[in-house]
Write a protein that binds this DNA or RNA. Structure first.
Lengths: 340, 340
DNA sequence: TTTAGCAGTCGATTAGTTTGAGTGCTAACA
DNA sequence: TGTTAGCACTCAAACTAATCGACTGCTAAA
């Protein structure tokens, strides 16, 4: 357990480093954070903190920078969450007042506002909700050969799954098929439709015609079951505002990972554990871009998780601000969508 | 009019500069491109080309780099399009064989493959097609208060327009409304539905109930008429592979413009003029990121333009390769979607 | 336990030097 | 008249040396 003064000093180092991106010196700490003791004293403490693994020194005549372990300690125990300014709250609220009619736009707006307010790259994940109930299945004929399947669930709409039509279905056939499909699918959970055969046995001989159609819809639902998330980023160029990413190779690494959906999904997969706020620091997370951390908050609507929203940026990012931004936005979304 | 030799030399300078990103020297040209005359001769020609505004010299003891004017001349008259290698064709074809079921995925795939093959940032624009015929209008109830409108046209599907339902419509009402809406809208062009009153007068008193619904659908169609394009990018970090963008400020400028939909739309607006391939070089285009050019090809399906696909990158990009990549991909898309 | 004082380290900055790639010009040559 | 060899000149880039100063660790006294 760290002494009280060590904790104060460690917090000072992290706070200062987050702000300045420069190694923090003993004098600096005395001037700005601990005016009641001398630099020499602080140096002794710093030296101790270093040997405990909380600090590192780039070279002997430089100040200290916090290690990954220090940031972990900082977010877990030391930092004091910074409430949003009235101005910031106003800006955010304004964004949400121009309520967007469709979900995609809402997701984009949320991503944009988070990135604008925090000045980090934001990442919003929208669950496709395998735990949702199917409300309606509609097959819309596009031409003789193909059709569009629209599946409506409680919270979302899956469209744009184009399927080939069995040849022997004319317009009337589709109408009947639609009726039948709705009887079969409606009220079931998306996740329930995992095994074709279970329900397949329910199908009476009369409807053998639709067997083909049925199979295809199940496939779509399965697909949605697997890759059940959509991921959106905003403000990816924000990373270049931070001096540690003025190195082209690091910037490239960051941007490339951001574009690789699979990497990004892995980083923002917060399914393990059920915390409202997840913070992953540096190499704690596999495939994290070099020198980065992420913060992600669950988005709940009526107590059901519909996705998550967060940011990714340099390890020394402003956690205390980000946390309150994400909390506030989470609440707003819940309020907004619960009302509907 | 430039002499034959001047044209050869200018082409050599541009080709070499595209490859090396370095100022091109007289000796270099003689060695690699014009073995039948001496550096001194080439120097005289270079000097002439410089005073004609085709070349610039960063400083007196450096070689020449092509001006914007030179690149314009190059793409218009000098370059020889480079056919794709068998290998490249194979890679592209493979991508297209795993035919994606839905349009969004197709667009993403096209963007990805263009970026991968050319190694520049790709931009794909998908028209929302106001000249398309409406095939079907379906209102799908989401809950008591709101509904989803799905409008199917020849080439695309507009979904995710969520509207508030007039309170007095129950499930049966929606069924009837759907029938009626289809009678009213089907077969009409999207662009036709610009003036509510025109068709409004057709509505018999009996259907006054649907007036509200009708208005909302017209609004959606109008909205689609205006902001009638969707834009997707891929490989935005590719720009960092080019030495001229190792400068953080230039990289930031590029990435920021790429994220600003309005800027990007302006750059990739190829509606003026009806060329199959549009090339905009540097400051020819307002709001172009510093030192950039774009190449964009129309995407036609059954002789109808459905969008465009292109790249944006450094002025010295490999136009001769890009042109053939885009042509090939355009043909593939046409073939693929025409078959359906 | 704290602190003043001091020697020592090492990155960053600046100034000065060298190198060499490339030009323009001139004069001779085809 | 067009081409070319030769030479003087320029200037960015690369390298070197010297200086500066922000820190620290250590020691010894308070």
């Amino acid at each position: 357990m760290l002494s009280d003064r060590k904790r104060k000093i460690l917090k000072a180092v992290v706070d200062d480093y987050i702000e300045s991106a420069e190694p923090v010196s003993s004098k600096n700490i005395c001037d700005k954070y601990l005016t009641d003791c001398s630099p020499a004293t602080v140096r002794n403490e710093l030296s101790a903190l270093e040997s405990m693994g909380y600090l590192v020194q780039p070279h002997v005549s430089a100040g200290r920078i916090p290690s990954q372990k220090a940031f972990r300690m900082y977010v877990d125990e030391l930092m004091t969450v910074k409430p949003l300014s009235n101005e910031e709250i106003e800006v955010i609220d304004k964004y949400f007042q121009q309520r967007a009619g469709n979900v995609e736009e809402l997701v984009m707006n949320v991503a944009k506002i988070i990135s604008d307010i925090t000045n980090y790259t934001s990442v919003v994940v929208k669950n496709k909700g395998e735990e949702e109930y199917i409300r309606r299945v509609t097959v819309v004929e596009l031409n003789e050969k193909s059709a569009l399947v629209v599946i409506v669930t409680d919270n979302s709409v899956l469209k744009d799954s184009i399927i080939d039509l069995p040849i022997d279905l004319d317009e009337n056939g589709i109408k009947t098929a639609n009726n039948w499909l709705n009887r079969v699918f409606c009220g079931k959970k998306v996740s329930e439709i995992s095994n074709i055969d279970v329900i397949m046995s329910d199908i009476s001989i009369d409807f053998a015609l639709y067997r083909e159609l049925y199979k295809k819809i199940v496939e779509i639902l399965k697909k949605c079951n697997k890759g059940g998330q959509e991921i959106t980023t905003s403000g990816s160029s924000k990373i270049l505002d931070y001096p540690e990413y003025n190195d082209i190779d690091k910037a490239k690494d960051f941007l490339t990972k951001l574009e690789t959906k699979s990497d990004l999904m892995e980083i923002f997969d917060t399914s393990k554990g059920d915390f409202e706020m997840v913070i992953k620091i540096g190499q704690e997370q596999n495939n994290m871009p070099e020198g980065c951390s992420m913060v992600s908050a669950k988005i709940n609507v009526k107590d059901k998780m519909v996705g998550s929203a967060g940011v990714i940026g340099p390890i020394r990012m402003d956690y205390k601000k980000i946390v309150s931004v994400l909390e506030h936005i989470g609440q707003l979304i819940d309020k907004m969508l619960s009302d509907q």
